[in-house]
Design a protein around this nucleic acid. Structure first.
Lengths: 255, 255
DNA sequence: ATTGACATTGACGTTACGTGATAGTATAAG
DNA sequence: CTTATACTATCACGTAACGTCAATGTCAAT
């Protein structure tokens, strides 16, 4: 069986540009060039493309793939082991980043909540900025290893499963909010379920849950245009509805 | 206080090129340009650089940093939350890759071990290639989600702590090997400790440990030049010494 | 005046292609 | 046989965040 660029590209699920590029860098040459200058690939090239794409999926650079595919099984194994190590390091790096982002978010939220009433004092911005500077310095000091480890934020120990759940929860909150909004009853079952989901979602981010903070936060969702927009994009009037539901849920009615 | 490019670059731990680039893309302009065309930065710019570097550490693109640093605290928080989500997705993607690499390594090792005696039949290469093709297809079929989940490889459930340990163990094996080699006694305490460390290291990669496979593997370390080179680079004669120690350790003496 | 450390502006290289521009070729329909 | 259109080819520029020359100008000290 013979294939032109497009046929092979469809077979492999890549673009024709990719095939021409692979030809250019010498990683996958066509079996022959026909009289019109067209690239013609054979079944051997199909197999080769499969292998290339396989390694590409693993995040290996084309340069290394080039070496790997011409290497023996042993060398391939060694290459894979080395690559595995790189991936693990990358993941640790990612974990560290996520931790730091979490700290930053928690910090910002804390500041927002604490300083909600001083909104116009002009102090807040300075405080937060100072804090960011401090963190930045901290990180650059010693890559933040020790400092970060001392953190007592809950998120630190989030497993992968929990990460998936918090994402799912986030979606669920929004979808339940949409449904609940249709009932127009913040006291209803759906709205209260939504408030409860929101609490569970928050609990992932907060060290410890408190009704006060919860109510405070949803009020802020309404007061601040940017958060309001976020929820209203999901469901117009959603921010207010969520606040009302959470006020009932927490049994707190003023802020 | 005023800073030239180099002074600021040393303060922030970045290259002068980076500062010129940041000027070029408008993310950090100098306070003024002196009569000789030199960039002069003030303390405000130092603060700004701190912030930029902070966000850069988090893996945020300069383009987004540009938006973030001019945004309010609320917007920054929202941006961070969004970024956090991206990081989590990236990590899941990485975990998937690591799993697949593990499968691939285990597969290759399995093939090597199983077919050690058929080394010259020429079947092996074909088998492995076929297998790789199969995996590649599998992955591209449905991103391998289900297929990968069905895997019963031990590594799948490696936590981060375990990942760190296996890396540490790997180093320990090599260092102990070096020390043990000095004793010239594969039956000695150090050599047996090394063999034991090697077993523990292997146990991370294998579904279940067997003395047979262990002895078989270390013999291969000697027989195959590429693996031999790997260990001999650490300690000349290391591959043979490790084999001898493991033969004693496993109480298996022929292969 | 000279030297050495510092500054400037280009401009090309990096990765793995995407996205045109321009031009030649194959194939089926009219 | 012409035409439409579907395909092919080769440039060549753009991407992100700088690294790395190269050529040239400036500052402080000897």
């Amino acid at each position: 069986m013979e294939y032109t660029v497009q046929k092979l590209s469809r077979l492999g699920g890549v673009s024709t540009r990719t095939l021409r590029y692979y030809d250019e860098i010498g990683i996958l040459k066509p079996a022959r060039i026909n009289s019109s200058g067209y690239r013609i690939y054979g079944s051997k090239e199909v197999d080769m493309l499969q292998q290339i794409l396989y390694y590409r999926e693993l995040g290996i650079s084309l340069d290394n793939i080039k070496k790997i595919i011409t290497a023996s099984t042993f060398d391939k194994t060694i290459a894979l082991i080395g690559h595995r190590k790189k991936l693990l390091e990358k993941r640790q790096q990612l974990d560290l980043l996520i931790e730091t982002v979490d700290k930053s978010i928690a910090n910002a939220e804390g500041k927002i909540l604490m300083n909600d009433k001083e909104k116009f004092t002009g102090f807040k911005k300075k405080l937060v900025d100072d804090n960011e500077k401090a963190y930045g310095k901290e990180i650059r000091e010693k890559h933040g290893d020790e400092a970060v480890n001392k953190s007592n934020i809950k998120l630190k120990k989030m497993t992968q499963d929990e990460c998936e759940e918090v994402t799912r929860l986030g979606h669920e909150v929004l979808e339940t909010l949409k449904e609940a909004y249709q009932t127009s009853d913040p006291n209803g079952e759906l709205a209260q379920k939504c408030a409860d989901l929101h609490r569970r979602w928050l609990s992932f981010y907060w060290d410890r849950y408190s009704k006060e903070k919860h109510a405070n936060l949803v009020q802020m969702y309404v007061d601040d245009e940017r958060f309001k927009t976020y929820y209203d994009n999901v469901q117009p009037g959603g921010a207010e509805f969520l606040r009302d539901a959470v006020f009932i849920y927490t049994n707190i009615t003023k802020y």
